[in-house]
Design a binder for these strands. Structure first.
Lengths: 125, 125
DNA sequence: ACAATAACGGAAAAAAGATTCGGTAGGGAT
DNA sequence: ATCCCTACCGAATCTTTTTTCCGTTATTGT
């Protein structure tokens, strides 16, 4: 696991929340599991743009943070399943709130974002 | 401004939200301005752990994204003020939700986080 | 024996983000 | 004259996160 050089600050609530749902694919992974997509291969099929390695690493970390719980049946075909813990379920409303706000303001942010890159291109100075 | 190499994906609401409130100091800066701390120097005094340069850059970006609006009175002592736009005010409930969830689960996350680093130290393989 | 699938992880590179260092500029106070 | 304050920005560097590449193990189907 990666060893931090700068001590992370978990005093502020926002930072605590970002620790769980921040990152490029975190919320997607949690959302998939909440929708009953429990196996790693299924999650990968659900989010094909995310590299398998990244999903694997996030699953490890979310398990360590007790957001999800792992269940392995050694049988065949080699079955691993992940489920949300109670704690994990408690983030769902937050993810829903972020998703709702984001979707409501998607067009505006996309527009501003596009304007920013155009501005950068048209002002080579 | 920084030029992305990988196209950012603003299709998903969560990513749109993270574009505005993600990042180490974004929410803190927006929160400060919402509390009436309008000048850069004031914001820096409010968040002394954040380097001045970082705050400056975020202010630029938040302005470009129209989350905040800038007002300059050329007079003296060289006064610049930032205010939330209507759009900016619309993120406040989201930041409040993140902060509330984070504060409610702070102790648990801190505990899990500590357990993770200890685990890493005690298992040198 | 050989491919296919599932789960997983090491290592290094790439990308993104944060930080430090230094510099600009205008004016005020001593 | 010299130092301080305010606002600001370029560039290099460091840290963190994401990605790519390539392995391992185990079992099933052909």
């Amino acid at each position: 696991m990666y060893e931090r050089k700068i001590l992370e600050n978990l005093d502020c609530g926002v930072n605590v929340a970002n620790k769980i749902v921040g990152g490029k694919w975190r919320a997607c992974i949690i959302d998939s599991i909440s929708r009953g997509i429990s196996r790693p291969s299924g999650i990968q099929r659900e989010i094909p743009e995310a590299p398998a390695r990244v999903i694997q690493m996030h699953l490890r970390e979310l398990e360590a943070l007790q957001v999800i719980r792992k269940e392995t049946s050694g049988g065949f075909p080699l079955k691993t399943e992940y489920f949300l813990t109670d704690f994990g379920r408690s983030v769902l409303p937050l993810i829903a709130a972020m998703d709702a706000w984001g979707n409501a303001n998607k067009a505006f942010v996309q527009e501003m974002s596009a304007a920013m890159t155009e501005e950068a291109l048209n002002a080579p100075s």
